[in-house]
């Protein structure tokens, strides 16, 4: 491991340690804010493994949140264990397994599609699964499912889920960072730049895409299970929600699609902005998110991190570079 990698691991560990310590001192309200930041950051990272690394924009990633949530709820209702470790392990394990299976089943056919076609096909997959969860009585999606309260009695539930989701985000970032540094990551970056050229140069494009899709779906499913456990009660509409897919994309876009920090920064900024500062305008939530998307595309196509980088280069003198496409 190079010195730089060691350094980033150490910094990351310190950041996680700091956040975990914050969990012991924050008020319940702030714990809940932190929890929703972690959940949306984790989902955004999950989306980013496919959307950011390979530029395969999925508009239906909420399908993995939904499948994860339903898998966790259904297994926890079927098998009742004692002790939170076993309960969380079965719920989360079932969610990850179910998402991985779904991803494996649809990966080969759906990843043959590119660009717009992939985007819309994922939207359709999400709609099909949502309809199925409502239509088939086994899933009880239209009535709703109750999840057991897994938090141990000695810990406040919001504190428990704060730590749980912090752990999940850490895992997600670690997996994504490992992928980015591995052969798989370079394969995905090559696909992002030019898939045909990558294939001609011997990059196993299909294998790369399928593996990324599996990782992406499994992580999103894991976040879905935690989301459901925290809510305690889910219906089709609450977990198969277009707004969740949108949030993953918007968070990555707002932060910037350049590095893994993008979705993290985006999740922090957007959660604080829409849930905390604009909490009184819930009616206008969708409109505000929509306007932010439009503004980002026009004003900061490289996201907040892109803007910051440009400003930094300008401060240091030298050419800001990049800039708008001259077309």
């Amino acid at each position: 491991m190079s010195a730089r990698a060691l350094m980033s691991v150490a910094l990351g560990a310190a950041a996680v340690g700091g956040l975990a310590w914050l969990g012991t001192v924050l008020s319940p309200f702030h714990l809940r804010v932190g929890l929703s930041i972690f959940l949306s950051a984790g989902m955004a990272i999950g989306w980013y493994i496919l959307g950011g690394f390979a530029r395969y924009y999925s508009f239906g990633h909420t399908v993995f949140v939904g499948v994860g949530a339903f898998a966790a709820a259904l297994t926890l209702q079927t098998w009742r264990f004692d002790g939170w470790v076993l309960q969380v392990a079965t719920g989360v394990g079932a969610a990850m397994a179910a998402s991985a299976v779904l991803a494996a089943v649809i990966a080969l056919p759906i990843l043959r599609l590119r660009g717009h076609y992939f985007t819309i096909a994922m939207l359709a997959v999400a709609l099909v699964c949502a309809e199925a969860a409502s239509a088939f009585p086994v899933f009880r999606g239209s009535i709703g499912l109750t999840l057991p309260d897994v938090a141990p009695p000695s810990v406040r539930p919001e504190r428990f889920f704060y730590w749980m989701s912090l752990g999940a985000v850490t895992l997600a970032v670690a997996v994504a960072a490992l992928i980015a540094r591995a052969r798989l990551g370079y394969g995905l970056f090559a696909i992002r730049e030019d898939e045909d050229a990558a294939q001609m140069l011997g990059v196993p494009t299909t294998r790369c895409k399928v593996l990324a899709f599996l990782a992406s779906g499994t992580i999103t499913g894991l976040m879905g299970a935690l989301y459901a456990l925290n809510l305690g009660y889910i219906t089709t509409d609450s977990v198969f929600r277009g707004a969740l897919s949108l949030d993953m994309i918007v968070n990555s876009l707002v932060g910037g699609m350049g590095s893994l920090f993008g979705p993290l920064v985006g999740a922090v900024v957007m959660t604080l902005l829409t849930k905390v500062m604009l909490g009184d305008f819930l009616e206008y939530h969708l409109a505000i998110t929509g306007l932010i998307v439009v503004a980002i595309v026009f004003l900061a196509p490289d996201g907040l991190l892109g803007l910051a980088e440009k400003a930094w280069r300008r401060v240091r003198g030298g050419n800001a570079g990049g800039g708008a496409d001259p077309r």
Partner: peptide, 29 residues
């Protein structure tokens, strides 16, 4: 047009998506 020129077709896709949210929110209100 400006979105396609500035970014990519995907940028245009996102803009149409963003604006549709605005209008739907307006209609709902």
């Amino acid at each position: 047009g400006p979105a396609v020129r500035r970014g990519s077709p995907v940028a245009a896709l996102l803009v149409t998506f963003g604006l549709s949210l605005v209008v739907v929110n307006g209609l709902t209100i």
